[in-house]
Design a protein around this nucleic acid. Structure first.
Lengths: 236, 236
DNA sequence: CCTCTTGAAGTTGTGTACAAAACGGGCATG
DNA sequence: CATGCCCGTTTTGTACACAACTTCAAGAGG
């Protein structure tokens, strides 16, 4: 990470995913340049990258705006993600894990289980569980030994208002409990099933459970977004 | 299409997919700027877009090179594509086609069948069949009413040396027959099965046949690429 | 003979000035 | 009063100059 263009790209991406720029907001090149203390050149490079990543919309001679994800879009993305993560789970089960991967995989599952079944369930535990969750899915991606698949899945996870990070930030800001504890418990049960299926090389089962697992999160998040957008519509 | 950056992007993309720039070739900004009679600014914008699309590799301070797709990469991409197109076929079957879509769908299938079972099978027929093939898959994507899925599938098809267009160009240049006629016949049989499954709303069957259909093309193309790369390795 | 340094050429990154296009407000006109 | 045109302002698109970095080769030193 040496060039300013890359620095700016990273900062902007993080800001958008964190909700620093609301969906629909115009991104003024001059304003961004001043805010980040660089010229417009690296700003423009960053914007074109984020546009290609799907985080921004662009109209020639009109500029960039933060992409607004509709409820339908979110559902569509989760449909694709469920299919891809299902595929990854099946491949991981069929290929199998190496000894060290296996150990780390099991350890991650164990720690998540410990957290979710423990007495304390505050922000700290939830955050840790979220990080482990990402690591869990990441390990499955890595086990497929298919970089294109891993990248495709990653893309489905880095969209405004839909990443774990974005959701968490929103939850923290508004003091909204996105999931109740039962949902986490249910999610963890899925993880245990998926882990078991992968470790015992049951590809079809791993795929089916993973698919359902992702589709359930999709439905949950869609419900939450629907409530949120109703609330936003009711404001003015 | 008004800005020079967009014009240049389109031209460059087409040139790369047509094989005008070989995989691994360095893209010199100054040279491109002179060749296209613009300054480096729109060239750089175009390069960053094509990098984000996955057509180019990029290293800061080193520049862009046309991405070199290994045989493994190609296999990985086809694995993902098979899964996604399978999903699309299933969704299309479950959702169903409208009357006019249904008619166009059937007409496309009929014309392909007419071509492949006809007496003449020259470049003209093969080209037409290829175009109808793209249209056929496109109609299935459209029927899912899921733009994200359609875009994801599109991405798997626009990679250097792997698009229909790239292959065709290569075949035309080298007078290599990529597929023998039996392979086209087999492919057409798949299409008939997929079409039937979709029109009769058999989602699971549509998914399974489509998956196998794509995976078969993947295997065929991988074989051809393997032969090609052996030939290239034997040259110097 | 090999390795490391050094410098020059060439390529990419960044800043900036200017051109062109879109946006917005005010005025004239129906 | 509504509507449409015109012009100034703002914002984006492009060109170009310069700075920073990489690369490669030649030469000194081991």
């Amino acid at each position: 990470m040496v060039t300013r263009a890359e620095t700016v790209t990273k900062q902007l991406r993080a800001a958008i995913l964190d909700g620093g720029y609301a969906p629909g907001a115009r991104l003024n090149e001059m304003a961004l340049a001043e805010a980040m203390a660089v010229s417009r050149t690296p700003i423009r490079a960053a914007l074109s990258v984020l546009f290609a990543e799907g985080l921004l919309d662009y109209e020639p001679n009109c500029g960039y705006v933060v992409r607004r994800i509709s409820l339908d879009d979110a559902a569509h993305i989760y449909t694709v993600r469920a299919s891809l993560e299902g595929l990854a789970a099946r491949l991981a089960a069929e290929i199998g894990l190496g000894d060290s991967e296996r150990a780390r995989f099991q350890a991650t599952l164990d720690e998540m289980e410990h957290l979710v079944s423990g007495q304390a369930w505050e922000a700290e535990q939830q955050e840790r569980w979220g990080a482990l969750n990402i690591a869990f899915h990441g390990m499955i991606c890595a086990a497929t030994q298919n970089n294109y698949l891993a990248a495709s899945i990653q893309r489905t996870r880095t969209l405004p208002v839909l990443t774990e990070r974005g959701l968490k930030t929103f939850a923290a800001e508004r003091a909204v409990v996105w999931w109740d504890r039962a949902a986490y418990r249910r999610s963890q049960d899925d993880h245990l099933d998926i882990g078991d299926a992968i470790l015992t090389r049951q590809g079809t089962r791993a795929e089916a459970v993973m698919r359902e697992h992702i589709e359930r999160s999709g439905r949950l998040i869609n419900q939450k977004l629907a409530i949120r957008s109703e609330a936003l519509l009711a404001l003015p």
